[in-house]
Amino acid sequence: MRKVFLPRDMAELWSAMADEPAARVYAGGTDLLVAMRAGTVVAPALICLERLAELQGVREEGEEIWLGAATTHAALLSNPLVGRHLPLLVQALRTLGSPPIRNMGTIGGNICTASPAGDTLPPLYVLAAEVELQSPGGRRRLPLRDFIAGPGQTRLETGEILTGVRVRKPVDANCHRFEKIGQRQALACCIVSMAALLTVTPAGVVASIRLAWGSVGPTVMEAPAAEAALTGSFMTRENLHRAAVFVRQAVAPIDDIRASAAYRREVAGNLLLRLLPG
């Protein structure tokens, strides 16, 4: 039998973590409990964050939106601030798992699992999200792309937890597009996904563009060369095809049971064509 802690405030959390330094921390359980069942994670004790009020909810703080780490995907989806300011994240959340998975899983969990297939990660990368980390010794902030160190790896220190995510409102963007290819339309692990955040002038010129791909490398992949090629260009099929070549050079996918590396590379580029208006 293992102890299971349900801290209600930070003091209870730190005390539980002090009592059981090797305890595993989770919120929704949709990743950790599955890994424990598979035997890939062994947890001498468990700390569940679902009742920690400080980690819940969404706040507007000036130019930023704060997302509590233990906020479920479903709560984010129904949150008006998220709906208004972060449509890209909304699109991604709608493809994540299934309704009960979204009722349980949290954004903090999706980040800390650090899977290259994590559905919220490509949008958070293009939104230049920062993570807030806290330990009894203090707090720190880190860009998400620096926090995620590799597949399943983060820079979370021992005794530290992820408390929230900060995203600057993308006020200038006028095109938010996320697309995920899975093996089916729900309960699907990502084969390849793309998040795109663009500002396009009324004349059809790309003023700025941020792109990121899921499941085509050890972490979320970016393609600065493709962004550079498109910035200042018209959104034409030809230009997108040209940029797609850079995308296919930038990604580093692998073969697995779901798809080949070649398919992932091909489609990572092809998804740019979806940005073509009309």
Partner: peptide, 27 residues
């Protein structure tokens, strides 16, 4: 469209319902 029980060297690779894909209501 989806279902393919993959076996490598006699070992089933798609041994759960996240890897062996059956249709959901959206498919």
């Amino acid at each position: 469209l989806h279902e393919d029980l993959q076996v490598e060297g006699g070992i089933v690779q798609t041994d759960d319902l996240g890897k062996y894909i059956i249709p959901t209501a959206l498919d």
